[in-house]
């Protein structure tokens, strides 16, 4: 299943880790994977963006109105990267419960048939003492919202494989809370 995913956020939020988890899972499933990351100076608190393409692609880049999915760990970066999302695309965004979109933005999403899901990942991270795992909460939500080309259980398996022992339980829990939040 071909899929183009844009992952956005701010330096330090763990965007690259999310990308790796999905990419590794897809690779384990025998799919072709291409991704692109931000390193260097932008990581010092700047906007970070990562592309992930699963399917028969040569390039790791994604152009305007080409992404099937936009996953953002930050609402401002969601807005900034909205042009990547194609009409009828899917957005999964970390924002507080009851988050109110600016009216012109709501109109834009409607006009383009974009489906947006809000995940209150910051609040969940605080509530369940999962500081630093906001990325995995959002990933868990994205997985059950069919945003990803691989199954949630397979991503969870990858997370178990690659995270060091002391972080494993926290990462798994975070992923599950995200999945639960999305299903509510």
């Amino acid at each position: 299943m071909d899929r183009k995913i844009v992952l956005a956020g701010v330096g330090g939020q763990g965007i690259i880790f999310m990308t790796r988890m999905v990419g590794q899972t897809a690779l384990n499933m025998g799919l072709n994977v291409m991704g692109s990351e931000t390193h260097g100076m932008a990581q010092r608190g700047g906007s970070v963006i990562s592309f992930l393409k699963v399917g028969n692609y040569r390039s790791a880049q994604i152009g305007t109105a080409a992404a099937d999915v936009l996953i953002s760990l930050n609402d401002m970066e969601f807005m900034r990267n909205l042009p990547y999302l194609k009409p009828a695309g899917l957005a999964v965004v970390n924002a507080p419960t009851g988050y109110r979109l600016r009216p012109e933005l709501a109109d834009y999403l409607t006009a383009n048939g974009i489906e947006m899901h809000v995940v209150p990942a910051d609040a969940l991270a605080t509530e369940h003492r999962l500081r630093g795992a906001v990325n995995l909460i959002v990933l868990g939500a994205a997985a059950v919202l069919n945003a990803l080309p691989v199954a949630a259980s397979d991503i969870l398996e990858t997370i178990k494989q690659v995270t060091p022992h002391r972080l494993r339980e926290g990462n798994e829990t975070a992923f599950s809370w995200g999945a639960r939040a999305a299903m509510e």
Binding site: M76, M79, R80, L82, R102, L105
Partner: peptide, 16 residues
């Protein structure tokens, strides 16, 4: 899409 977002006037995020 780009034009729409540029009109939102989002603040830039400079590295610090």
């Amino acid at each position: 899409g780009q034009e729409f977002v540029s009109k939102l006037g989002l603040p830039g995020r400079r590295p610090t």
